[in-house]
Design a protein around this nucleic acid. Structure first.
Lengths: 343, 343
DNA sequence: ATGAAAGCGCTAACAA
DNA sequence: TTGTTAGCGCTTTCAT
C-alpha cells in the first residue's frame, strides 16, 4: 500500500551511511566534499528503489513543515480567494503549501484556528484578522511566531503588516461624489464595528465629506451584520425608499455590500446613478457589466499578497526586516463606471 | 520562543509514565481503566505547564496529519472557491485542515502537486483533475491513497468520484432554447479539449439539439484556451459579429466564459436576449443583476463538497464504500433569467 | 491500574 | 571523504 523505502534502506543497499545519503538527498553533498561517484551510486539507488523522503520525519526532526497558514474571514469572498490564489503561487514557487482557514468573523474560531495551525507547526501565518485588538498578535510576536497581518490592522500592533490605503481610497470615493455636487450621501458598512478596514474607510470618507461640510445623517448610516448582509441591506434600502427621503449617493464598504445594494436597488426600481449614485470599496470583475456598471475602489491584491509572502519568508528565514518595512500601506485606485456618474 | 513542554516533562513532573500521559491526552485513559485521580493529576499538570502536543511528532508516529489536499484548476474561480469553503467547513468540524493547490490546467504541475502532498503525508485528496486520463488515479487507487475525484471524471476510472449531471444540465439549457423556437445556436467552450465536464456539456447540449435536427455549425463552435479566455472570446465574438451571420443564442460552458461573453456582447452593443440569447453553465451571484440578468445552470456546490468529504473520510477510516456510492452524479437546476428569454 | 522500552525516519554534532 | 551516534516527541506492544 504505502511508501516503504527509507533512508536507511538506501544507505544499507549502497553500503554507505545514512548521513551520506541524507546529504545527497538534501543537496549538501558537494558542500561536504562527497565523492562524485559515491553520490551517483546513491542517486541511482534512490531512483531504483523509488525512494521518497518522508516529509513528516524530516519535519519532526527540523521543526519545519514548509506549510503556510492563510486565515481570512471567508475564502469564498472574491477578495480573499484572489489573495489565496496569489499567495499560493508565490508559495508554490518556493516550495511552500498553503492551508486555508475561514473565520466567519468569529474571534474564538480564529484563535482556535491559529492554535491548531501552530500545533501543526506551520512555518508561518498570513492573517486578515477578525480579532478586536492587537494583544493576541503581540504575543505571537514575542513568541517569535512568523506571521504577517494583512488587510486589517490594529492599534498598538507590533506584528509585521501590510494593508491597503483604506482611508485614502474612501476619500477618493467621497471626493468623486462631492465633485459632482452630491451632498446627500449614505453609507453601508458591515458589523461587527471593530474591523479596521471598514473603520478606516468610514473615517476617510467622512473626512473628505467634512471638508465640504457634508455629514452623513444617522438614518443613512447602515450597518449590515456580516452574516446577514443580503437581508439587512434589503431591509435598510426598503426603509429608506419608503421614507421618501433618499440620499443622492451611497458608498458601500465591501464587495458583498455593493452586490447586495445593487441587487435591491434594482428590485426597488431605484435607478443608478439617476436616483442614487453608487460606489463601492473593492472591485470585482462583474462590476463592469452589471446594470449599471459599478464604480469601485480597486485594491492591489497581487502586490498585497506578494509583499505579505516576502515579509513572511524573511521572518521564517530569520532575516531582519527593516523598521520601515514592518508596516506598509499600498495605494488603491478608483475605477469610475456608470453607477456613480450623474449626468 | 517556541513551545518546549513535552509528554515526558508532564510524565516526570507528575511521577507517572509517558504512556499514561499519552492515554490521558488521547482520551484513552478510561478505556484502559486509569484511576480517575491519576487522570486528574495529569490533566492539572498539563494545564499548569501549558502543554500542547507536538502534532508533528504524533503525525510522524501515526502517519496521520489530519490534513486534506484540495486540487483544482484555479482556486480564485468562484465555483472552486465555494467548494473550498464548503469543504473547509466540513473538514474543520472533523478536525481536518485543507491545503489548496491550483493547477492552471497544467497536467505536470498537478502531478507534482499530488506528489508533494503525498510526500507531506496528507491523509487524503480531493481533486478536480486536469489530467487527460484515468491511469494516474488508478495507480493511486491501487496504492491505497484515499482520494475522491470531483467535478471532472475519466473513462475507465476506478477512483471514487462525485460529479454533477453535466450532460443533463446542458440538455436542459438546449431544450430551453429550442422551446422558444431558437435553432441558430452557438457554443463557447474552453480548451484543452479533454476536460470531461466540458465535453459532457457539449454532448448533452448537442444531443438535445439533434432531437430537433439542429446542429452547431463550426463557425459558431468556439474554443477559448483557458488561459486567454477573455481575449479569445472577444476575438470570436467580434468575428461572428462582423461576419453578419449571428446565431440567435449562445451557450457558454463555464462561468468565466459566460462573464467574457457578457462583457463583449455588451461592448459590441449586441443586445441579449433580443439579438443573441445567452445561457451559461454554472451560476454566479452576479448574474442576477447583470444587464441583462443571465440564465444559468446551477450546480449543487455544497452537496458536492459534502459528499466528497464524506466519501474521503470513509476511505481514510478504512470504511467500505458500497459500489453504488463510488460514483455519483448530482442533479443540477436551470435558473432562467432575462438573457435567454426571447420576447 | 500502570510502566518500560522500542522505534517511526530523519538530521546534525562529532569522530575518524 | 565518510561514518557513528544520539536523539526529536510521540505511540504502542508487552510486561507487571
Amino acid at each position: 500500500m504505502a511508501k516503504k523505502v527509507s533512508l536507511a534502506d538506501i544507505a544499507k543497499s549502497v553500503g554507505v551511511s545514512k548521513t551520506l545519503v541524507s546529504m545527497v538527498v538534501n543537496g549538501k553533498a558537494d558542500a561536504h566534499g562527497i565523492n562524485v561517484e559515491t553520490q551517483k551510486k546513491v542517486r541511482d539507488k534512490i531512483q531504483e528503489l523509488n525512494y521518497e523522503p518522508n516529509a513528516l520525519a524530516r519535519g519532526f526532526r527540523t521543526g519545519k513543515t514548509h506549510t503556510l497558514g492563510l486565515i481570512v474571514s471567508d475564502i469564498s469572498n472574491q477578495f480573499y480567494s484572489r489573495i489565496a490564489r496569489n499567495l499560493e503561487d508565490y508559495a508554490w514557487a518556493r516550495g511552500y503549501s498553503v492551508v486555508i482557514c475561514s473565520t466567519d468573523e468569529n474571534i474564538d474560531k480564529e484563535k482556535e484556528q491559529i492554535r491548531l495551525l501552530r500545533e501543526r507547526k506551520v512555518d508561518g501565518l498570513i492573517i486578515s484578522s477578525s480579532q478586536m485588538e492587537a494583544s493576541y498578535f503581540n504575543e505571537l510576536v514575542s513568541e517569535g511566531v512568523p506571521h504577517v497581518l494583512i488587510d486589517r490592522t490594529f492599534d498598538g500592533m507590533q506584528s509585521v503588516n501590510v494593508s491597503v490605503d483604506n482611508f485614502g481610497g474612501a476619500r477618493m470615493a467621497a471626493r468623486h461624489l462631492l465633485t459632482q455636487g452630491i451632498k446627500k450621501i449614505g453609507i453601508i458598512a458591515i458589523s461587527p464595528d471593530h474591523i479596521s478596514t471598514i473603520n478606516e474607510r468610514i473615517r476617510g470618507f467622512e473626512s473628505a465629506l467634512s471638508e465640504s461640510n457634508v455629514s452623513i445623517p444617522p438614518e443613512w448610516f447602515i450597518r449590515a451584520p456580516f452574516d446577514s448582509i443580503d437581508e439587512s441591506v434589503k431591509d435598510a434600502l426598503q426603509r429608506i425608499y419608503q421614507s421618501g427621503n433618499m440620499p443622492e449617493a451611497i458608498f458601500t464598504l465591501n464587495n458583498n455590500l455593493t452586490a447586495a445594494a445593487l441587487k435591491y436597488l434594482r428590485k426597488l426600481s431605484v435607478k443608478s446613478p439617476e436616483d442614487i449614485a453608487l460606489i463601492g470599496f473593492d472591485d470585482v470583475i462583474y462590476y463592469s457589466f452589471t446594470q449599471p456598471s459599478v464604480s469601485a475602489i480597486e485594491q492591489p491584491v497581487d502586490r498585497l499578497s506578494e509583499k505579505a509572502f516576502n515579509l513572511l519568508l524573511s521572518q521564517i528565514n530569520k532575516e531582519d526586516i527593516p523598521a520601515h518595512e514592518r508596516s506598509s500601506y499600498l495605494p488603491v485606485d478608483i475605477v469610475i463606471r456608470e453607477s456613480s456618474v450623474r449626468t
